[in-house]
Amino acid sequence: MAKQSAVTLSDRRAGLSFISPSLLVMLALVIFPLGFGLYISFFRTNLRNQWDFVGFKFFIQSLSDPSFLKSIGITLVFAILVVLGNLVLGTVLALILNTEIRFRVLFRAILILPWLFPDVVVALIFKWIYNPLYGLLNYGLSALHLIDKPIAWLDDPNLAFAAVVISCIWKGYPLVMILVLAGLQSIPKDRYEAASLDGAGGLKSFRFVTLPGLLPVLIVSIILDTVWWFKHFTIVWLMTSGGPIDSTKVVSIDIYRVAFQNFDFGRASAMAVIVFIICLAISIIYRRLVRDNEE
């Protein structure tokens, strides 16, 4: 028994030694920044020689600020529209790629390319497409005689938000497509054969076989995609910088401006903590939904 206990202790030490590098990296890159961000949210600070403790003042100030609440609302609408677009487009393309079509492997490689492009490249591509003078979109619409004069897509408050959403959908649908395609290939073929023997057509097979089989994958896709786009910054900032007239000012841009334009790091940290809590709530909902689905 003593020998067995000694072996067990040795195994535990070996296990700790194996995970210690990744644990240290996790502490340095995740735990410490989160803890430090929470810490400075209680101070009015310039991160150098000013550390005035203010308690929960910045949290209360942020939650009572109409501009911040408006940016939260814009972010919610932005995230919902992008996630819905990714879900519909990614699912439709996955269903097509799951069939026996010619050049299926080539189409898969092409359709996954937007996800491989950096956000900066995607933003610059779509800024060129939406350009009112030499943009491809205005050129195509003019060639089809659908518009009489160029449209400044990113300068119109009523159009800029939709233009940014479309750009982000183009960037984000491949992830949903890959997840749904993997889910489709994991559904046993005998379920479709049983449904066919029971007289179910294509629509009924999709409703009673495909959708239930895809439900776990769809839940994961929706929640992860929502968290990702709720905190997104790069594409929106590079395309519109939150304008025009704050029509595309998502919460990440609001936090950036407070921190690096107003140099109010404590309040910016408090705003970031609020966003973190919202994302954490989304992840808790995700865990509960997955657990209920498994049960």
Rank of each mutant, 00 (worst) to 15 (best):
239 M>Q: 11
251 V>F: 12
248 T>I: 03
269 S>E: 02
226 T>S: 15
267 R>Q: 14
269 S>R: 11
256 Y>K: 09
276 F>S: 15
266 G>I: 11
279 C>L: 07
260 F>P: 01
268 A>Y: 05
278 I>V: 15
228 W>V: 01
235 I>D: 02
227 V>K: 00
258 V>S: 06
235 I>Q: 04
238 L>V: 02
252 S>R: 04
268 A>K: 03
228 W>G: 02
256 Y>L: 03
249 K>F: 03
247 S>L: 08
249 K>D: 11
235 I>Y: 07
227 V>P: 12
240 T>L: 08
253 I>Y: 10
246 D>R: 14
279 C>A: 14
239 M>P: 11
241 S>I: 09
253 I>M: 12
230 F>L: 12
267 R>K: 15
242 G>W: 06
255 I>R: 05
265 F>T: 08
242 G>M: 04
237 W>Q: 11
232 H>K: 04
267 R>N: 05
257 R>A: 08
276 F>A: 15
249 K>N: 13
227 V>A: 12
238 L>D: 08
279 C>Y: 05
268 A>T: 13
261 Q>W: 07
275 V>I: 15
265 F>E: 01
229 W>H: 12
264 D>N: 14
230 F>Y: 13
236 V>C: 01
226 T>K: 02
279 C>W: 04
265 F>D: 02
258 V>G: 00
252 S>K: 02
270 A>W: 07
276 F>I: 13
236 V>S: 01
241 S>P: 00
243 G>R: 11
235 I>V: 14
